[in-house]
Computed example of a mutant assay.
Amino acid sequence: MIELGKKQELTVAKLVDFGVYLGETENAGEKETVLLPKKQVPEETQKGDKISVFIYKDSSDRLIATVREPKITLGEIAVLRVAQVTRIGAFLDWGLEKDLFLPYKQQTKKLHENEEVLVALYIDKSSRLCATMKVYHYLRTDSPYGEGDTVTGVVYEISDNFGVFVAVDDKYSAMIPRQEAQGNYKPGDELTCRVTAVREDGKLTLSAKKKAYMQIYEDAESVYEIIQEFDGELPFDDKADPKIIQREFGLSKNAFKRAVGHLLKENKIEIKNGKISIR
């Protein structure tokens, strides 16, 4: 069976002026073969020879074979360059003559030409090969990482209910839980995170924060810099509404209080009349 979107070793069933027809056997019928265009046929090819090819569809929506190496195959994930953006979707460079279509509904953010995006390859309802940025179901769950490891990945989707979904090494399934996802994240962000757990299903739970005793120094430095941006005085103290703290600092109220406490111990700030000021 000739399979769309996959690499296969097929047999030359018929030679014609414009190429060769390939099938599972050299006696395959016309409906069981696919064309490999003449310019891609190896020299001195004969009937019965085996050729490794990739199967996709041409501009007329017909199955066609190529000896070129695609950058992604069916069910796989890869980072591809955006070649063109249109009103109905984007077209990606995947190493073949015809660019790969990424439908608008399968995008998780606004795209621009020449940027690189993480996508999976699937077959749509019209039996066409398409790309999707919604890669959750295509990510692997057999990562080599364990609790405490530091990993890098890219944000591919954000859920208000669950958290920030991350593709570690562009292929492993991971998530920063909603309660841990302090800060402003968007699809395409590259993150360095700490593995806090490996679930039974193999998916990774991440924290973008370092261990508490290390994170407090980083948070304190960030808070101090933002107070400076307020001309050295915040119009509120550590009893402020958590929503205000999240908006201004990207921190939970508890993390903010710890950072403020650290700055107080270092005598860098003071709290007076409901305001935080630099000393």
Results as ranks from 00 to 15, higher is better:
Leu139Val: 05
Gln107His: 00
Met1Leu: 07
Phe162Ser: 07
Asp142Asn: 11
Leu92Phe: 03
Lys125Val: 13
Ala208Asn: 15
Thr150Val: 14
Lys275Asn: 12
Leu35Glu: 11
Lys243His: 13
Tyr104Arg: 14
Phe236Pro: 09
Ala197Asn: 13
Lys239Gln: 14
Glu147Pro: 08
Ala240Gly: 00
Glu43Gly: 15
Leu35Pro: 11
Asn114Tyr: 13
Gly232Met: 00
Ile216Asn: 04
Ser207Lys: 09
Ile278Asp: 10
Glu115Gln: 11
Thr141Gly: 04
Lys125Asn: 14
Asp17Arg: 01
Val135Ala: 02
Leu4Val: 08
Ile176Pro: 04
Gly232Arg: 06
Glu76Val: 05
Arg81Met: 13
Gln215Ile: 03
Gly89Pro: 05
Glu3Gly: 07
Ser222Phe: 07
Asp201Gln: 08
Ala208Pro: 02
Thr66Arg: 02
Ala181Leu: 05
Ile123Val: 15
Glu97Asn: 13
Val79Pro: 07
Leu36Ala: 06
Asp93Glu: 14
Gly153Gln: 02
Leu263Ile: 06
Ala120His: 00
Val198Asp: 08
Asp17Phe: 05
Ala220Gly: 12
Asn254Pro: 01
Leu118Cys: 04
Gly188Ile: 04
Val79His: 01
Lys39Tyr: 15
Ile77Met: 02
Ser52Pro: 12
Val260Asn: 07
Val198Lys: 04
Glu69Ser: 11
Gly95Val: 09
Glu180Thr: 00
Gly146Asp: 12
Pro103Leu: 02
Leu74Asp: 07
Ala240Arg: 03
Gly48Glu: 08
Val117Leu: 03
Gly48Ala: 04
Leu100His: 04
Arg258Asp: 15
Ala28Met: 07
Asp189Ser: 03
Glu115Ala: 11
Asp160Ile: 06
